[in-house]
Design a protein around this nucleic acid. Sequence first.
RNA 1: GCCGGGGUGGGGUAGUGGUUAUCCUAGGGGACUGUGGAUCCCUCGACCCGGGUUCAACUCCCGGUCCCGGCCCCA
Length: 437
Amino acid sequence: MGSFQRPRGTRDLLPGTMQRREAYLRTVRALMHGAGYGEVLTPTFEHLELFEAKSGAGIRDELYAFDDKSGRKLTLRPELTAAVMRAYLEEMTHLPKPLKLYYIANCFRYERPQAGRYREFWQIGAELLGADPLLGDVETIALAWRCLQAAGVETLHVRLGHLGLVRGLLAEGKVEQPEPVLRLLDKGDRQGLQEHLLTIGADEVAAPLLDLLAARSAPSQEQLQLATELSQSHPSILPTVGHLQRLLALLHHANVPSIHLDLAIARGFDYYTGMVFEVDVPTLGAEKQVCGGGAYDLLEAFGGVSTPTTGFAIGIDRMLLAQEQTRGAPAPLEALDVLVVPLAPQAIPLAWQLVTKVRDTTALSVEVELAGRNLGKALKYADARATTVVVIIGEREVAAGEATLRWLSDGTQRSVPIDLVAATLRAGDGSAQAPLP
RNA sequence: GCCGGGGUGGGGUAGUGGUUAUCCUAGGGGACUGUGGAUCCCUCGACCCGGGUUCAACUCCCGGUCCCGGCCCCA
């Protein structure tokens, strides 16, 4: 080992890992474009005030914040939603609504690293501005579900809630500060909630809130039933109950299966206004949440015109960890399709002509043997690289205007006229095909 | 910020208050200057860092650091 280590909480991604990751991200990009979303990329750093405006000054010690040379207060972005909203207000307000944006980007948080939690991590996210609240909710959850499914992870638990319920009840109960209640609900701290409601004198809504909490893991239909019953004595939550009923029905048609209602989910920030959802991979351990999202409105707080927005963010790193649990860890290097081995000095020009032609006319990965090894060593190297075909060009081949193609899987060989090698490789002949990682 | 478990070549490991620090694997080379995955040989390469105890520390103690698991937090 050299003298230097990577900074704490960061990772080096090697070729095999990158190949798998890029395959997933390619799929995600295709899904996003297929749903009409356009990709955006915002700066890696922003003004500190942007994130303080979104999440409060308390997040400051979790940020990579710094002063630049002119004394500006900046920070590496801890997430993308605030930045995308900022960019929308700065450059995109005139675009037709609904506006659909997505991003794939790295974020930075100064937190204690754990399994699945890094100081530099990557997110896939989408934001939908100006849609009808119900239809926007369907669209957002359905899209998140498609992106999650594309990773081939076996068990995904989706939990869906709606802040209208609890906020409605709290408003009826004249509770001035809903945040502590939301937090206790989200944590599932029944006793703490009970005590807190007693302290603030919110007696009349204590019973329904505790009922919602107690029912959070019950089947969705039972929770809906409970909410419907509550709405008879608490009419302010009637619209929310109807919204959830319609949302669940529509999600069924959007092919999103098995959503578990959890009416106590809170995602404790003010700007969440309606639907909220979270997705877990249970086998990931303590840091098992791979996706979170919901309906929010940040634009007013950012000095713009209030606009209903829904969005989600997926933790790429955690998704890939979950993927490894089913697929196994990737090999460190990518496999090689073709290795061209010149065995004589006069074969070297031919080898380069050939490799150039194959690169121009096929999607195969092709190398010329670059270490000047003899054939035995070259074959051994090819084997270590999981190569499909070795093209041998020696004195005999040069004289005959041919190349010898050797398939490493079964050792079969064929002589092919040099002009036809690229076509033969492109045709694959059933074997010159890169296996999926 | 807190609690617990760890740290020996690139990966996996053995081991001890005084050794030439073990073995496997991977990398490089050779046996093998036109045929791989085998075998044999050679080679490269390590005790996380700092302080303390000691005649002597990789080993014991303290601190730090990094990794792992968990708490807090999770935008």
